[in-house]
Structure formats: structure tokens, C-alpha cells
Design a protein around this nucleic acid. Structure first.
Lengths: 244, 244
DNA sequence: CGATGTCCTTGATCTACATCATCGCACCGA
DNA sequence: TCGGTGCGATGATGTAGATCAAGGACATCG
């Protein structure tokens, strides 16, 4: 397809044709499963996209013909009841993959919380790559396993935890995911609105707000500039999260 | 390994060495991904087990060195909080696979609800089979996808539905899974206790009990002999489940 | 630079469901 | 045959969190 480029232009040419090889977050994502040389196959089918905050990426019920990688920003996934009640089933950050649960139609709506960069893959071609590279398939399976475990934790939270335990668990979860991505785990940026947090925890915005103030006045957390939360007393927050 | 058996005994010999080939529920399970001939590999590592009701198969936190297939009966999976609050994350029936989310340690406890038959596989050897048969790996991934979608539905239920909507959804879910297994979808056997249902739906036994009576007196369901529930008005039950 | 809007917070009140208590019934072992 | 035990149903009461209401902090915009 692409002519083999030579001499000085070679390097730039490679990067242009194979942006994935220069991807700074590759190891965080599904792409980390591939060797440098195999990556070109991904480059061939990927299309990068930048979208602003509060944009719908796709909606529940639409044909699921694309999958995505989040390379920066924050995304929320949610399901709605007919009367408008909403449950956010997850927040996605740098490195997360959208479209793990692959059926004919999307099972949820995906919407950006902040400005976001996405890698977009046509699903058919991604499926072909999965067949070609079992390592990719394995990595995807292991990511699905992690999601499943997170979903079970979330069920415990939604079904059995109090408001205070829910909020504490939420903050610790954010912090934990930061550290998994190799970022500083405290203070924690909280880019989503109170109402998003409420719909994630099965609460109302008022209760979330009150619970934040309660934790703050107990000296467990501090609310900082720029929607950051300082986990002052992590140990105690963990106790709170488990009902201790 | 096993000597090649000849003549009249051959057939029985095969079945004994390869019980999987005679498995009546094979197509429902992960094993359905394999050809007759490949099944012998599974037979070599499988050990079948029958266990009574209310037995622990494994506990949260133990080394996850086995995976299982349910060939008959009902199993529940649950997580506990330190103070004993319990969340049941799922019920498993004939054909379901235990151990999808594979980490070093079990993320939940698995306990039988009724007498149950299990196929037991050492995890290491199962992993080897997954490498050998990509079809098996694919099947497992697709089962994980389904579980993930079910988990998202359950989050919506736990976070945003009322008691009545929860119970209605639960009954419809049982019925739907029956029909997926090719069984009659009404009336629905409900082998688990009120307290199990409560811990699955994020309610108390009393509320579950009251909600059953409420649905009964509205003529939407009938409680039959032998813990069966007759979904009298399926359409209306669906409306109730979605808050209609 | 007021006008308008959105988000967060806080207060007052309400309610769905939890909690506490009791009872009936089926099952079971002695 | 008879207590014992566990489960399910139902009634009385309590409460965590929802709902309703209002004000304050910012940002955007004519």
C-alpha cells in the first residue's frame, strides 16, 4: 500500500503512518499487548478524534459498529429508565476501552465528561485483528475480567452501602485508578458533577453534597481548588468505606 | 496414556474416558465451543462433583486454582462487608461457568442453593486449553461479555429501581434465563430463599415478602406449589419492571 | 454590568423501606 | 406425638435518604 519511504523522511513517514508507535499511553491500553511491528496494523484502522465536554459518543440501542480507546479525558457510561432515572455504570479514563461488552447494539450511552481524545476503531476490523493476534484477544479478556470484578464491587456498593460508605469508596476508587495509571494518587481530581456522582452511587445530588461536607467537617477530606479532593486521612477513609 | 480399547468394550470405554462427549448440557456451556474430538482434552482434566444444598464451593479471598461448570442445580455468588452485610452478585444455573473473572484470588464466595452437579477444572490446565483452542477463549470472552451486560442491568436495578420494580425484574430475569436454556419459561421455579432474593436485590426479606404479596393481590403473579411463581400477566410485569 | 443560567450547598419536610416484633406453618428428629 | 427450628408473612414503628425549597458562587452574554 504505502510506498516504502527512505532516508531522512523515513522516520517521520513512519510516525505519520503509524501514530500508534509514538502513543504515550500505549502500555495502559489494549494496544500494549502488541509488538512495535504489529502496531502498524492498528494504525491502519485507527482514526483519532478529539471531542469537547458533554458530547455523546454513542447512544444506548444504536448499532455497535465502533469501539474506542480513551487516550485522554474522562467519559461516563450510563443507562436510562423510561421515566428518565439514570444509572451511571462507569467512568472511563486514559487507557480505558469502550465496547468490551460486544453485542449488536450498545447497551449503554457513552458521553464525555471533559474534553476527550479517542482512538476510534471500526468494530469489524478490530474483530479481524483479534483473530490475527491472540495476544490482543487475551488482553481484552483480561480487561473484561477486571471490569467484571469492578462491577461486582459496585453491586455491593449500590445494594448494601450507606451514603457515607458510597462516597468514601468512590473517592478511594478514583485514587486507586490514578495510581494504577502511574499518576499521583492524592489529591484526586474529580472532574464529574455532583449529579454524575449521584447517578453513579445511586444517590441524589443533595445527599452527595451533604456527604462531602460531612466528610470534610470530620477532617477526612479537604475540597481544593479546581475540583480536586485531598484525601487527608486515607486510612480512616478506607475504614469509612467498609463500614468500619 | 489409556490403552486403546477394542471391540465391544470400545464404546463404553470411550464414554468412560470421555464423559464430556455424552454431556447433555454441553451446548449450553463453554464446552459447546469444541468439536467432539477436541472434547477428550477436557475430559482428561475434568472431575465431576455432586454437592448438596447450602454448601460452600469456595470462599472469597481463597487461591483461585479451580474453575467450574454448573451442569445442574443452582449456585449463588456473594460478597460480604466486614459487619456481615451481604450482596449476592449473581445466581448460576445449568450451563453457567464459575471463575470468569480470573485473578489470583476468588473475588466472591460461591455457595450452592440446591443440590448441584459441577464440572471441576484445575485452572492451570484450563488456561493451557484456552491457549490451545482459541475457540474456547472466544467463547469465554463472549460469556464474559454477557455477564458484563447483566452486571450493568443489575447496577441500574440496584441504584435506581423501587422494590416493586426490582422484584418484577428479578422474576422476569429468571424466566428469561429459563427460555435461553430452552426450558419452559412459565411458571418460574424460584429455588432461592426470600433472604437470598433480598440480598440479590438490595432489600430485606420483609420487603421482598411484602412485594410478592402486593404483586399477587394485584393479580400479576400467583404463588404455586413447590416454590414456583406463575407470571400471570407477563406484559404488565414488564411494565412494572421498567417503572411504567 | 445587570440579567440569566448552572451548579453547589443547606434547610425543612416527607416517605419508601428498614427495623423490630409476632405468629403460623412445614419439617424433623426423638 | 410432641417440642424444636427455620422460613415466610404481616403489623407497628423508626430512619436514612429523597424531595421540596431557597440562597449563594460563578460564568456567560446581551
Amino acid at each position: 500500500m504505502a510506498p516504502i519511504s527512505i532516508a531522512p523522511s523515513a522516520r517521520n513517514g513512519d510516525v505519520e503512518n503509524n501514530p500508534c508507535s509514538a502513543c504515550p499511553v500505549r502500555d495502559l491500553t489494549v494496544c500494549g499487548a502488541l509488538e512495535e511491528t504489529e502496531l502498524s496494523k492498528m494504525s491502519e484502522i485507527v482514526r483519532t478524534r478529539r471531542v469537547g465536554a458533554h458530547r455523546t459518543i454513542f447512544s444506548e440501542g444504536e448499532d455497535a459498529d465502533s469501539v474506542f480507546n480513551v487516550t485522554s479525558g474522562t467519559v461516563k457510561l450510563y443507562k436510562l429508565l423510561p421515566d428518565g432515572r439514570r444509572q451511571i455504570t462507569g467512568f472511563l479514563f486514559t487507557g480505558d476501552y469502550i465496547g468490551l461488552s460486544m453485542h449488536e447494539r450498545y447497551a449503554y450511552t457513552a458521553e464525555t465528561v471533559t474534553p476527550t481524545s479517542l482512538c476510534h476503531f471500526p468494530r469489524r476490523q478490530m474483530d479481524a485483528l483479534l483473530k490475527e493476534f491472540p495476544k490482543l484477544q487475551q488482553r481484552l479478556f483480561s480487561m473484561a475480567s477486571n471490569e467484571l470484578e469492578a462491577a461486582q464491587d459496585q453491586m455491593l456498593l449500590l445494594g448494601r452501602k450507606t451514603a457515607k460508605e458510597k462516597v468514601a469508596s468512590f473517592l478511594l476508587g478514583l485514587s486507586w485508578r490514578l495510581s494504577r495509571r502511574g499518576q499521583k494518587e492524592n489529591p484526586v481530581p474529580v472532574p464529574m458533577s455532583r449529579s454524575d456522582i449521584a447517578d453513579y452511587l445511586g444517590l441524589t445530588t443533595e445527599t452527595v453534597s451533604r456527604t462531602f461536607t460531612a466528610l470534610k467537617s470530620q477532617g477526612v477530606i479537604r475540597l481544593l481548588e479546581g475540583n480536586k479532593v485531598d484525601l487527608v486521612d486515607c486510612r480512616r477513609l478506607e475504614d469509612v468505606a467498609e463500614g468500619g
